[in-house]
Simulated assay, not measured.
Amino acid sequence: MEKEEERILRNLGWKGKGLIMSAYDAETNGHPHMDNPDDRKKEGSLRFYKPKFSYIFCDMDGTLLNSNSQITSTTAKALREASSRGVKVVIATGKTRPAVISALKMADLSGKDAIISEFSPGVFLQGLLVYGRQGREIFRRNLDPNVCREAFLYSLEHKIPLIAFSEDRCLTLFDHPLVDSLHTVYHEPKAEVIPSVELLLASVDIQKLIFLDTTEGVANTLRPYWAGATRDRATVVQAVPDMLEIVPPGSSKGSGVTMLLDHLGVTAKEIMAIGDGENDVEMLELASLGIALSNGSEKAKAVADVIGASNDEDGVADAIYRYAF
């Protein structure tokens, strides 16, 4: 492509460098990621630039999705453009795979040869379910059933909704508007109401739990209590302020990404990661370039190489056009 550009420019009497060679020079002579941080590539121009990364690992809530839990047309266009240049976009999220497929379908980004499908690699449920080549499961880790039992008894006693995540299913003990919002707003599968704790625990293996409450309720009551109650049997983590997740100890999105990279034969030097939450910290630390969006948690921003635009300012698109090429 460089030779073709050179021929065209020569015929036009142009004596300087073309876009392709200028991009190559920038990559060679400066820092590979941040040589010209203000040099945002224009939409539609990525075909003139060499990708700096083989993979982009991207979070969903608060990152790829804006505050309305939607992907904007600008972000969708950036993802398609990066993908057309051979950069593989992999989702790393606390969501189920069906939730991701549902959310991306709205932007025409799901299906065969799109960003996500049932045949795509990906990291789901905070790294507790990892799918490799052809979308086949390569890792699964379950939560201690005793922790699950205690959490559901607490949910019943305090009337605080709790959701169990089991692969592609969501289960709960009672209906609640916040439970409905997990489906209507966050695209998760509609929660199945199970009549008793013991029946629920006997019917599925649970990877993680989510308490749904107000931001204040999570910060002031749920998180302090469950950080102590789980002891070394589980870990609490937050992706959004009004939800508290309980996951197996030592698990993280970053460990799931590491496992997937090993499976794919890819090194961390080949990836850029974009996230916003404390659950993205290990992934951002692992990547060659970790970008935390400006709407993100202080923990995520503290470990990031770059602080990007917010999710309501097309932060993922901005990161792709600034740093990925």
Rank of each mutant, 00 (worst) to 15 (best):
N311A: 06
V204H: 10
R133K: 15
P241S: 15
E43W: 05
L182Q: 15
C148K: 13
A229D: 01
I71D: 01
H183T: 11
V257G: 07
L143P: 13
L261V: 04
V185F: 03
F124D: 02
M272A: 09
E6I: 12
V193G: 05
K52P: 01
D59K: 12
K88E: 15
V123R: 13
R141T: 10
V306A: 14
V218F: 10
S69W: 05
R7T: 03
K105C: 11
G62Y: 09
P177L: 03
I101K: 04
K253F: 09
S294N: 08
L109A: 10
S110V: 06
R97G: 08
L129Y: 08
E167C: 01
F165G: 00
L129I: 00
S117R: 05
Y186T: 15
G315I: 05
P249L: 12
R133T: 00
L293I: 08
K17Y: 02
L260V: 05
K41S: 07
A107V: 12
T267I: 09
E6G: 08
S196H: 04
A103L: 02
H176A: 04
K208Y: 05
G94Y: 05
K15N: 07
P98L: 10
G135N: 08
C148Q: 13
S255V: 12
L46R: 00
S117E: 04
S69N: 14
K15H: 07
L12G: 08
N36Y: 14
Y24W: 06
P224D: 13
L200S: 00
L260Q: 09
P98A: 12
T93Y: 06
T215C: 07
D314R: 06
I101E: 13
A227E: 14
V316Y: 08
S251E: 11
I246T: 03
L171R: 10
L178A: 12
I274S: 01
E81V: 00
Y186R: 11
A229C: 03
L212W: 00
L199P: 00
E167P: 01
I194G: 04
F325S: 06
S251A: 15
Y225K: 12
D175M: 02
G122A: 09
A229K: 13
S110K: 01
D39H: 12
H33L: 07
S294Q: 11
F53S: 04
E4F: 00
D213L: 09
G315R: 08
V123Y: 11
V90A: 07
S54G: 03
H33S: 12
G44C: 15
H183D: 09
P248A: 14
V303Q: 13
D312Y: 00
F53H: 09
S255P: 00
A26Y: 01
A268S: 15
D242L: 04
L104M: 14
D205F: 02
E2M: 07
K50E: 07
L209D: 05
K208L: 08
P121H: 06
E188G: 01
I116G: 03
S297G: 02
A202D: 13
S196P: 02
H158P: 01
P177M: 05
L109E: 05
Q126W: 10
S84A: 11
D175R: 12
I307M: 06
A268D: 11
S196W: 02
A319I: 13
H158D: 01
G111L: 01
G290A: 10
E6F: 06
D39A: 13
G315Q: 10
G62I: 05
S181K: 15
H183G: 02
E298C: 01
G18C: 07
V237I: 14
L200W: 02
V90R: 03
T221C: 03
G250Q: 12
P224R: 14
A292P: 02
